[in-house]
Amino acid sequence: MTGAEKTLVPTQFGGPDTEVITLSEATKTYAGGLTALDHASLSIRQGELLAIVGPSGSGKSTLLNLMGTLDRPSSGTVRVLGHDVATLSDRRLSAVRARWIGFVFQQFFLSPHLSALDNVANGLLYHGIGHSNRRERAAEALERVGLGQRLDHRPHELSGGERQRTAIARAVVSRPRIVLADEPTGALDSASGAAVVDLLRELNAQGTTIAVITHDGELAASLPRRVRIRDGRVTEDTGLAGAAPGGLGVGA
């Protein structure tokens, strides 16, 4: 990361070695007895852009759900900015998701009845701020993802790539501390997928911390840090290998 880019990291949130999300020995066993995540430990620092890779069924989505506090671990701990998720009430945890975490899903999950602008504005719905304020910020976010000309389009009037960029705008409109993307290019052709990846890089360059699950080895290889999962275990983490003790896991 260059010095110029570093200044774009919001300084009021603490330095780049702030741990945004930390998993320690996190295990997830589903009701059927299947252990989808097995003593996984992982730390994501502010400003990072990392890829999570691994074969289908290896536990990538499970890991992302735990990181995003959408689910709680069966054992081990998950911390968001140092706060142990297990100690938080549903209301608190929901506020953490609203303010600190943005999600991007493979299926976009856009509301077909709403314009791109209103879909993005919904990213701020649970912040308790006013409608016009939400729409203003949503317009800015759509501008950021290059859809400033598509504010009034409904999802069915957008291409797949534009839909995913709309979903990304919704994830970043609240300026979260981290964006978690689960196969954001999975439903896209390679060209629009590449555009989405470029967008994620750009957002990261502007200071957004991003973790992205991908099946695309080439894409993963091009990102600063890769975490590989197999059978619920973290088998490789390039960030750690290249990192100086206590140092940044980026720029390897």
């Binding site: 949130f13 603490g14 702030t18 741990e19 930390t22 911390r79 900015l81 140092g82 706060h83 938080l88 209301r91 608190r92 929901s94 506020a95 953490v96 609203a98 303010r99 600190w100 649970y126 912040h127 308790g128 701020i129």
Partner: peptide, 11 residues
């Protein structure tokens, strides 16, 4: 890590 930031309050 010690909590580095105050938890956001529910809105």
């Amino acid at each position: 890590a010690a909590p580095s930031e105050k938890l956001p309050s529910p809105a």
